[in-house]
């Protein structure tokens, strides 16, 4: 049984390190990947405790579904618009530190005192093994004795479905109108820090752009611009970037 404790400490170490990685990682996507690693290691811990059903649920629900939810959030928000996680106000840092210490103390107290121990009831290892495993035991308990709670769960899930749709589903007509409004055509002009295209003749001298004044640049959806071009081929050269002063990213709005 020696290798079992080696495996446990390996799993626990990776679990704690990846949990720390979730907090420390700069990129939100990296945090999500660390979270996957953490969830998988928790599933492995459940396996070592003999709770194989819980381990599979951990993988399917947390690693599968919850992580999908997290990644979808990352897709929906613009990562550049997220607040920087590592530059909190001093009061936030201090209160976070205090709350974290309190939580750590609580967990330590619970572990050392071992006061939290539920009644095992009839679920002794022998009884569980007699019905074939803890998935079977759970099924017997859930669908026989606690049937009402099980049906109530289905009601709760239905409420979750309806709530998700009511709260998050955009009105269809509004969506279509918004999509019509945001159509943009980008012809690939590098834009200077002042927002004026680098190749605009009035500002930058000779260029293949049609003689355009800033008045000709029709704004679409607020900020972006359409620029009339006489010779589109002139814009497909590699090296168009070089017109930008210092190789910085072209537009960030």
């Amino acid at each position: 049984m020696e290798w079992a404790s080696v495996a446990f400490y390996l799993i626990a170490t990776v679990c704690v390190l990846s949990a720390a990685g979730v907090v420390i990682a700069r990129s939100a996507v990296h945090s999500a990947i660390f979270l996957i690693l953490c969830f998988l290691n928790i599933a492995a811990t459940f396996v070592m405790l003999g709770a194989e059903f819980l381990a599979v649920v951990q993988v399917i629900v947390y690693t599968g579904a919850i992580l999908v939810l997290v990644l979808f959030v990352l897709m929906l928000v613009d990562e550049d618009q997220l607040p920087d996680f590592h530059t909190g106000q001093p009061i936030q840092r201090i209160s976070g530190l205090i709350l974290g210490l309190i939580l750590l103390l609580e967990i330590g107290a619970a572990i050392t005192a071992r006061s939290i121990q539920g009644a095992t009831g009839g679920a002794t290892p022998e009884n569980v093994a007699a019905v074939g495993g803890n998935t079977q035991a759970l099924g017997r308990v859930l669908y026989d004795d606690n049937l009402l709670a099980f049906i109530v769960v289905s009601l709760v899930l239905t409420v979750a479905v309806i709530g998700a749709i009511v709260l998050a589903l955009p009105d269809r007509r509004v969506g279509i109108n918004q999509r019509r409004g945001t159509g943009t055509i980008n012809l690939g002009h590098p834009v200077g820090t002042d927002g004026i295209p680098l190749a605009l003749p009035a500002v930058r001298g000779e260029s293949p752009i049609a003689a355009a004044t800033p008045g000709d640049l029709r704004p679409v959806a607020g900020e972006r611009q359409i620029i009339m071009v006489r010779d589109p081929d002139a814009y497909t050269e590699v090296g168009q970037h070089d017109a930008a002063p210092d190789n910085r990213p072209l537009i960030k709005r």
């Binding site: 979808f72 929906l76 979750a160 690939g188 497909t236």
Partner: peptide, 29 residues
Amino acid sequence: SGVPEVVATKPRFTPRFYVVAMLFVVFDI
């Protein structure tokens, strides 16, 4: 071969995706 990009290449997705993800969680459970 082509024009250099001028806007952020990471597009944002419609909230519709998120509704599908939440429905996925519920039916997963």
